[in-house]
Amino acid sequence: MKSENPIEVHTTWALTLVVIMTNVLGNLSLSRGMHQVGKIVSASPLDYVRVFANPWTVAGVCILVVWMIIDLALLSRADLSFVMPVTASAYVLIAIAGRFLLHDHISGVRWTGIVVITLGAVLVGETPVRTTKRRPEHLR
């Protein structure tokens, strides 16, 4: 296991938190928009264009674009097997936001799921952010 520079690790963790927050806000906004638009399972591109007339959907897509860029920066610095389970805490926050903002009912089984995901994310969060070697400058 290689030693990690604490400043670089802090930056990687900050990126991880931004990835989680933009994922939560983007998905909540997108979900609200898609429910306002109504059912579409279609091969016609026009049906998907119609989706972009809804402001919640547009806001959701914009936030998810930011999420995508920050996620790419994160994946340039950290392991995929670190990033995926840790950013899964977004599910926990989406469920809790649904409970308190949209007054969704959360059953006992779903609370169990929330606790289990949190345990998994914490467990992976205790491993080093990166285990592979950096690519030498001249080969980039």
Partner: peptide
Amino acid sequence: LAKLVLKEDVAWRRWAGATLVTCGVALLQW
């Protein structure tokens, strides 16, 4: 695939964490 293709060092904590996350996310469907 992170272990096999990307050659990441997937320690037991990562396997356990990924398994817990998969189970937890599936439990959220109830």
